[in-house]
Amino acid sequence: MRDAVIVDAVRSPIGKRNGALSGIHPAHLSAHVLNELVRRTGVEPAEIDDVIWGCVSQVGDQSGNIGRNAVLAAGWPEAVPATTVDRRCGSGQQAVHFAAAGVIAGHYDFVIAGGVEAMSRVPMGSAGRDGRPTPDEVLERYGVDGFNQGVGAEMMAGRWGLSRRRLDEYSARSHARAAAAVDSGALDGQLAPVPGVLRTDEGIRRGSSAETLAGLKPAFREDGLITAGNASQISDGAGALLITSSETARARGLRPAARVHGVALAGDDPVIMLTAPIEATARVLKRSGLRIDDIGAFEVNEAFAPVPLAWQAETGAADDRLNPLGGAIAVGHPLGGSGAVLMTRLVHHMNDQKIRYGLQTMCEAGGMANATILELL
């Protein structure tokens, strides 16, 4: 029976809004990680059957099938096809799911999954009808004027009884863990530095504390809890993973890093919007026959601090296994690229620490979530 394995995974450093990467076209940023991936693995670009690329705001510089433009910008043969997918913040993770399914079905020998978002160049929300991508009938169904993730985060904090202090403490921890990962060299193997531009994640604020974050004003409600300090940063970045089967890897003398052990999806209330990772996690554990304690590392996207905290409260996941290298609050969340960035971080951390199982899940606009379990090889 065919399986799907990740041979290697790379990502760019994550640049902050209007920062070091803002001058780079997203096709060129994507091409950078594509070329680094084939350089590391020794697989020729002409052998790639498809490139599946995640991107959320597919307008402006990211329009016209950014995945295909990335392949051409990389200088690869015109025969290499590509497609671009959008499952909101989980687009890069969904690209991995599609790629793994294609390998298992026998449609691909080698496929690259990943994603990009250049939020400095293509602002969030650019791809809507007059700024409102949701049809009136859907808004009427839920009795709202629009869907807002920040308001959803406020609702989560209220539902799970999370105080401003708790959110800020978690956020300060994200910065501290990310800084420690940089200083220890834990990120070196996963990064594809952009020469002369950026070598490591740009958004980390060293010395952040709950006390300093307490001075920030609420962003979505006058008396709210969500601020710029306990939410993910607007960022630029890309990541890519080479996926094949164990059989093909053996035939080519490649040593895979991890197997895609199980995947799941979930949908939930699109108003609160951010709760679906809880159900997606339950589903992927059930399908995989694993318990939460079997998982040695979790990447739960830090779109807002209430997301991983509510998820942890419901799952009982160990604190030291949750986002051990920091997360999007510290380094940023380049939307369509984040799924690939998180999975790259997870694959390398599992290999460095000899962790058998890792789990990744992400909240997504519209009240959706992806969940993936990887197995170390």
Rank of each mutant, 00 (worst) to 15 (best):
A100W: 00
W53F: 10
R88F: 07
I104Y: 07
A82C: 05
S63I: 11
R88N: 12
E44F: 05
V111D: 09
V85A: 09
A82G: 02
Y108N: 02
N65S: 05
W53Q: 01
D109G: 06
C55N: 08
V56S: 13
R87E: 07
N65E: 03
R88L: 12
A95E: 13
A70C: 02
A95W: 07
R68M: 04
P81M: 02
W76I: 04
G75Y: 08
Q94P: 02
V71T: 08
G106R: 09
P45Y: 10
G42N: 14
V43L: 06
W76E: 01
F98L: 13
F98N: 11
A70F: 03
D61N: 12
G75K: 08
Q93F: 14
Q93P: 05
P45R: 15
G102K: 10
A95K: 00
D50R: 07
C89Q: 13
A100Y: 01
I112V: 11
W53M: 03
T83R: 15
A100T: 11
Q93D: 03
V71P: 06
Q62F: 01
V111K: 02
N65W: 15
S63T: 13
A74W: 04
R88E: 06
R88M: 15
A79P: 12
A99K: 01
A95D: 09
S91W: 05
T83G: 05
S63W: 03
D109I: 01
G114T: 00
Q94Y: 00
V116W: 06
Q62E: 15
L72C: 06
L72Q: 02
G106Y: 03
Q58I: 15
C55E: 10
A105H: 02
Y108D: 02
I48H: 08
T84G: 09
G67F: 01
V43M: 11
V71W: 00
D61C: 03
G90N: 10
A79H: 12
C89T: 09
Q62W: 06
Q93W: 09
S63V: 10
Q94E: 10
G90D: 05
S57T: 15
D86W: 04
V51W: 03
V51F: 04
G67L: 02
E78C: 10
R88W: 13
T84I: 06
T84V: 12
E44S: 14
G92I: 07
Q62L: 00
A95Q: 06
A46N: 12
C55Q: 09
I112D: 14
E44H: 11
V96I: 15
P81G: 04
D109T: 15
G42K: 10
R68C: 05
A100C: 15
V111I: 09
E44D: 12
A82D: 05
E117C: 15
V51A: 06
E47H: 13
I112A: 08
D61K: 13
G114C: 00
V116I: 12
F98I: 10
R68V: 12
Q62K: 11
Q93Y: 14
A113M: 11
S57W: 09
F98E: 13
